[in-house]
Amino acid sequence: MSTSTIEPPDFLDRAITSGSGARAFWSRFLTCVCISLAFLTLIPLLSIIFLLLKNGLPNLSLSALTELPPAAGMVGGGFGNAIVGTLLMVAIGLVLATPFGILSAIYINEYAPASRLSNTVRFVAKLLTGIPSIICGVFAYAVIVLPKTGWLAWIPSGFSAWAGGFALAILILPTILLTAEQALMSVPHAYREASYGLGATNFQTIWRVVLPDGLPAIMTGIMLAVARAAGETAPLIFTALFSQYWIQSFNEPTASLSVLIYNFSTTFDDHQKAMAWTASLVLVILVTVANISAQVIFRKKQ
């Protein structure tokens, strides 16, 4: 091993003096900026949660959940009718939208995955998710609330739980459809082949093999839809309107939590404002429970 080799200029010296220190510093600086910005987004959420608890908890009691809304200047009361109204209208929305959503998901995934109709359904469903929620309200207003003439006169008109539920159904249809499609897509193809291989018909395969396996994921989609529908105000504000009383029939104006929050947040009555916070707390809890149960159902499947 020769030590008399002429030492070549050390190229690592070139590396050290190439100004990379400034570049490395700049990179570290940007990292700090990025981390700071990411944590900045935590502040509004923490602020919302803090205020929900601080302003909402003091009035949260059994009577808040079970009594009728207080009139201006009154104390006590609650929003029991609004909780019932919200649950009722979400239920109407689900009953209307779920069959359509799941059946068309079955069509576009099981029967004709590549057909022009299926591609159109997928595209339209994506577009429907992008339609502003208030448009669902406008549509329900046009279809149900406005008085009908001629052969449509049998449809009950006016502000009603039906109208609100219908608006929510339009709102959640694309959510249910697209998540159900994903759910069916994740069912292993081998299951279908096995079923067909045993001589099952199309319907038997879908009903006994594909749907049971995809069901948890479909339920996830439904729970996400519930969360979305429960939190929405815009579609209800001029379809279900609001009511100070317990619901007597589906054909009359109906209270909902979100519209109650909207109404009470803009009054000058301090107690009603406090009630708006309590109702918000309940609504956020409701929505979060729906979201978390959606996650739990989904995880169980995995």
């Binding site: 069959p99 059946l103 577009l127 249809l173």
Partner: peptide, 17 residues
């Protein structure tokens, strides 16, 4: 028959828009 039902639902989804 079931396929027909699913087809109707799909057409309805498009028709709603």
């Amino acid at each position: 028959l079931f396929r027909g039902l699913c087809w109707v639902a799909s057409v309805a989804a498009v028709a709603i828009l």
